[in-house]
Design a binder for these strands. Sequence first.
RNA 1: GGGAGUUUAGCUCAGCUGGUUCAGAGCAUCUGCCUUACAAGCAGAGGGUCACUGGUUCGAACCCAGUAACUCCCA
Length: 891
Amino acid sequence: MSISKTYLPKETEEKWYSYWLKHDFFKSVPDEREPYTIVIPPPNVTGVLHMGHMLNNTIQDVLVRRARMKGKNACWVPGTDHASIATEAKVVAMLKERGISKKDLTRPEFLAYAWEWKEKYGGIILEQLKKLGASCDWDRTRFTMDEDLSEAVIDTFIHLYKKGWIYRGVRMVNWDPQGKTAVSDEEVIRKEVNQKLYYINYEVAQSEDTGADKNETGNPAPRTYLTIATTRPETIMADAAICINPNDERYLHLHGKRVFIPLINREIPVILDEYVTMDFGTGCLKVTPAHDLNDYELGQKHNLPVIDILNDDGTLNEKAQILVGVDRFAARKKIAVLLEEAGALAKVEDYKSQIGFSERTDAVIEPKLSMQWFCKMSEMAKPALDYVLNGEVNLIPDKFVNTYRHWMENVRDWNISRQLWWGQQIPAWYLPNGEFVIAKNIDEALTEAKLKTQNSNLSAADLKQDEDVVDTWFSSWLWPISVFDGFKDPDNADINYYYPTNDLVTAPEILFFWVARMIMAGHEFRGQAPFKNVYLTGIVRDKLGRKMSKSLGNSPDPLDLIEKYGADGVRVGMLLCSPAGNDLMFDESYCEQGRNFANKVWNAFKLIKGWEVDENLSNPNQIAIEWFGNRFNQALAEIETQFGQYKLSEALMATYKLVWDDFCAWYLEMIKPAYQQPIDKATYDVTIQYFENIMKVLHPFIPFLSEELWHDELFGERDEMDCCIVAQLPNIGEINAQTLNHLEIVKIIITQIRNIRNTKQISPKEALDLSVKINSGLPYQQYEPIITKLANIGTFSVVNDKVNGAINFIASTDEFYVPLSENVDPVAERTRLEKEKEYLLGFLKSVNAKLNNERFMANAKPEVIDIEQKKRADAEAKLAILEENLTTLAD
RNA sequence: GGGAGUUUAGCUCAGCUGGUUCAGAGCAUCUGCCUUACAAGCAGAGGGUCACUGGUUCGAACCCAGUAACUCCCA
């Protein structure tokens, strides 16, 4: 049978994924084992896989697979999020294509379309995750609008309302005029934008009472003006006052005056408040409570009326009096012209300022007063902060603790209503008299309403349910509980076993919307945080540091990458460039490196697979076998530590080097029989064992290839359930430091000789002789076969005297000589030795400086002093050898 | 304007409580190899004023202060 020269991932991936599924390896049910649980951050149901998902889910899968291989009952719960704004937008767009407008539909009709859409496109992303190898328990797949989960949302709403933590109120919200919904502060993206600053003159009203402004002839006094600066001239019709700083000496004459709004000539007062910055603009601020948050607060303070001149879609309404029906941006341009014509526009300047944009629709956010539902945060924030501060919940990396605390200490109430249909409808029913009741369904609402009004004649028809739905995060904050049915059935076997979960892997940008709120919900409903560790991944950026996004088109399609490099290659590629919590500059070349790695493993397999065993041969490789056994244990220990600290990229790199450098480049080269020669049984058996162990260590990173090789007959008979995915990771055995140290010296010797070949242009095929003068007492004789093989040595001899006319080098404190067929160039040799000597002298000098320093000797720790003394001894010994060699050379 | 963070080789990053030859890894680069596991490879090599300026210390990439550049969050 011929084995392909390179690893071909395609059929392997398909084959093993369905095998794993068929044999229920991803499935988890509570049992006596220790659970290891992850709930997936549910992607948008209508979304497609992007690089961020790729990173996130690779990390989760590595963690889950590793836990499974450590004997834990691993459970990774998958699912999707209904994502009200994003999904509703897509459904609206789809309807539009079919010539249907949302406003012509009833709510149930619209929802029917939305569900149809969800059934058709929802879950594509979960299918894509399978391509990556995600070992989720698919039987547990949940959706945030599943009946049970929605019920949990409604119950939660009622629960919090009864506690007094949910209330209804007029607030300034971020209004998205395109999506026609309020969005949370976190969904507003601020960008710096070039704008214009308009200077507008307001005529000051004449004082009737004092007559001071009339001149003696009784003619009207000349008109006077004040000038304000604004970036939003279209809102002047909503002005409620002009505000000046009471300390502003320029405007003392305006105290107590009134002014006219240009174009509409409505009279408004001049008010005084130190809030106004004197040196910004003209020092006169127009106060527009309906359209600016700060103005709103100022208006509240001064009891100003709120005049809202904008419709929900961003056009001007009749309260504006002019430009009614015109969009806010068109109105801005038009009003500038009108003001100009009226002589009220003093000047226009360029101006840069921060503007909020909707994350979902990219429309400019309009501050808008509206009646919304709010969830009070202060009581819930406190315990949620404590979980993180006292370490019950670990944020990884911990630099996010500060950010988290800052946010939790300054948390604002959560606007939980959204003016959409796709989502859980708010369980509030309005009575004819304007009052409302909160109830689980219409029947309960009616009962409540009758009780409340003492009117037993009320009927269901008299009640009208709130039109809005709750914010999507109001369902996803319950996710870790609701996926285990913890609301409907708070004492069921699953929730008791799997909750709290172990690790949550998510992006730092949703630390507050999601992570913090899950902790709040966990505390409120289970008295326990929902997870122990939160691993915050970085943002995937392109090579230039730009965030990968659809609009920039700088994101590769993950499925294309898998097609090109194999899922294993892409997984390795993702992890290679992803330090925890730092953004990662993704480049396709990392996937290439991943693919090459998989190929390396494949070829190591191919080599071993090709060996013939001769039972009669004795084992010449005991040293190599012992060394690799130790090295393997050492690497296992390192990898264990790195996983413990969630340094996944480093754990992968340690694995990578173990396989590539230690196993392939050193171990296999040491034991490899000559071409077409058989190998002895002992070496063969232990090597296969080593390889099998390596498959295990590799499995979390490259599950497909490791599973594929696992089933080769090389490893003997396997029954159906004997799979790499459930193999137990090897235990960390004892590590003999001396074995490892000795072999490091052997490697140095080999490298030195190879280096000599390279610099002297000697072919690797030409054997060289090697003599060693042993000063250290190291048993070089036993390493002779390895050195001879890897450095292609002809005769290896131990000598008592220096060898003249040979290239020499020092390893440990022993002297090595390589005689060359042609004479060694004494000048070049001298230069080389002198250089080395110089280095050693410098080194010795710095060591001596420390040892001769009384304060060092007095203050440094004894072990540090020991080390320094050993360094001095070693350097002096080497220096002595060098000196001798230089003398010899001179002879 | 307020808060947090980052700055180490061409690139991406390690570097734990200051002390091993501590200046590291992978990739890229250069040189030489088609040595029958692998050119998706093998062997070897060269790359850095640890952002800058001061300070603390016997000793600083690491601690402190200031400066600069960049990033993020909040206003």
